[in-house]
Design a protein around this nucleic acid. Sequence first.
DNA 1: AATTCATATTAGACTTAGCTAATATGTTTT
DNA 2: AAAACATATTAGCTAAGTCTAATATGAATT
Lengths: 106, 106
Amino acid sequence: MTEKNIDLKIKLIHGFSNKVRLQILECIKEKEKTVSQIVEELKGNQSNISQHLACLKGCGIIVGRNEGKYCYYSLRNERIRELLEMFDTVLEDVHSDVACCANHVD
Amino acid sequence: MTEKNIDLKIKLIHGFSNKVRLQILECIKEKEKTVSQIVEELKGNQSNISQHLACLKGCGIIVGRNEGKYCYYSLRNERIRELLEMFDTVLEDVHSDVACCANHVD
DNA sequence: AATTCATATTAGACTTAGCTAATATGTTTT
DNA sequence: AAAACATATTAGCTAAGTCTAATATGAATT
């Protein structure tokens, strides 16, 4: 793996490593939604959500589609969905250990 | 997904979202290694590597095994390896999508 | 039992990520 | 063309993550 590739990989994974972003992904997992729908469902701050959407888009995790004044976001493809499911699977394995990771703040 | 579970999920994913940690994982992917072997191979700082190992361990991504004065680290299980491979697969997608999407900005 | 070796921990500086509030851009609606 | 609406961008602040250097712990060697 090249230096450049590992940087891209970090960028990709980083896209998943935030609560708001994970919630956005859960939110649009089944079907595309507009920014305001996401803001509404997550009870979030519009600016904040918009920034996270930009991040997810920049990471290649989601895609945006403009329609008039709305912008619909959805997962980029099926593999992203599979990856999300894989996280859940691994999480089941790992459940108890993660709970005591000292390197993170709750 | 419960509130608590989503936090655990973030912690797990966070474990993968750092260059040094990804390099460590690549390094021990095939077989267990001692801390000093990892430090040597990555040409890294001992303290730094040790902290990242603690993080990976705390996230349930790797396990440590003491043998005398040495400590051997390895991937926790096969699922972790699969997840690592999944990242590469998804990364390829992102690459190829980007490659054939004229509208994409860097 | 003193020294060396392998690893872990701590402290402090530095960097990056994330948040909110304010403002800008662009598109409909009136 | 003005107002309302949807989304994006920017600025400034705070919190969290990461690094290095120094020190501690604990096992093996002498």
